[in-house]
């Protein structure tokens, strides 16, 4: 709530320059960028508030200018992606990784944990020409300042973060597991029904939207805080409910395999 006094003050102050913002995408599905655009009611306001220098498929002429904020969608899956990423990091003050691919590696990193022979037929014996890199999330290569989790990310969360930047506020990152919001929404617990729901180990902030729609949590927002300890207990719990080891790991690996691996690697080096 603005007081009258501060409103008056704002009016007399010289107008602050708009934040220079760029939206970019590397290998991905454009879903995160669409999530920005699908804020139909607020979109014109966002365009007005920010100085948007570039936006894939809408305003694509790239800029050489140094940017205040870059929102980046996608996974690093080729040398071309990596070059782009390094260039983007060097030309912005704040880098926001947007969506599962950028933040946890998402579905594309699943292939790091699967049988190599499942992919050979898809490469048409053209390994040399295909500019492949082992797919990894953005923070495997460069420093990331903020994360917008999820596949797709919550479109309102994107707006909140934009507003925080405009106001010069530090964005708030939700860290509790999905179960917190799910219980609040009074959804039946799918885990109790024996289903392999990843809610307990997954970062919430999504209002448990999948569970509201009857679907188990697939873990798209990455590990919740404190999951380091909880993963082992959780896996044991799923085993006790009769799920096989391979199946459980397939489920975890679908969206957060890379982060799960990082957690396991860190444990080993401890």
């Amino acid at each position: 709530m603005k007081s009258k006094k501060s409103e008056g003050k704002l009016r007399t102050e010289p107008e602050k320059p708009k934040l220079k913002v760029g939206f970019y995408g590397i290998t991905g599905c454009a879903g995160c960028l669409l999530s920005v655009v699908f804020n139909e009611d607020e979109l014109l306001d966002v365009i007005n508030k920010l100085d948007i220098k570039t936006f894939p498929f809408i305003k694509e002429k790239d800029t050489d200018e140094y940017l205040d904020v870059i929102f980046l969608e996608g996974v690093v899956a080729s040398n071309h992606d990596l070059e782009t990423l390094k260039k983007l990091r060097s030309k912005c003050n704040i880098l926001v990784a947007m969506g599962a691919c950028a933040t946890t590696g998402g579905v594309p990193t699943l292939r790091n944990f699967q049988n190599e022979e499942n992919f050979t037929r898809l490469k048409y014996h053209k390994e040399k020409e295909i500019d492949d890199l082992q797919p990894k999330p953005v923070d495997s290569y460069v420093h990331v300042d903020y994360y917008i989790q999820g596949c797709p990310p919550d479109k309102k969360e994107i707006l909140h973060i934009i507003n925080d930047f405009v106001m010069g506020k530090k964005p708030y990152m939700y860290s509790k597991p999905v179960c917190v919001e799910c219980r609040k929404n009074k959804n039946p617990c799918l885990l109790e029904q024996g289903k392999p729901c990843l809610g307990p180990v997954t970062r919430g902030g999504c209002n448990a939207i999948c569970l509201n729609g009857g679907l188990m949590c697939w873990g798209c927002r990455g590990p919740a805080d404190g999951t380091k300890e909880n993963f082992d207990i959780f896996i044991q719990m799923l085993k006790d409910k009769g799920h096989g080891e391979v199946f459980i790991h397939d489920r975890i690996n679908t969206f957060q395999g890379w982060k799960f691996k990082e957690i396991q690697d860190a444990k080993e080096t401890e």
Binding site: I26, V75, S78, H80, D81, R111, Q114, N115, D132
Partner: peptide
């Protein structure tokens, strides 16, 4: 296309 490859058809194999 400078889109990196994601090999979805490979990822679906051995899933339920």
């Amino acid at each position: 296309s400078v889109e990196g490859s994601r090999y979805f058809e490979g990822m679906l194999v051995e899933r339920l």
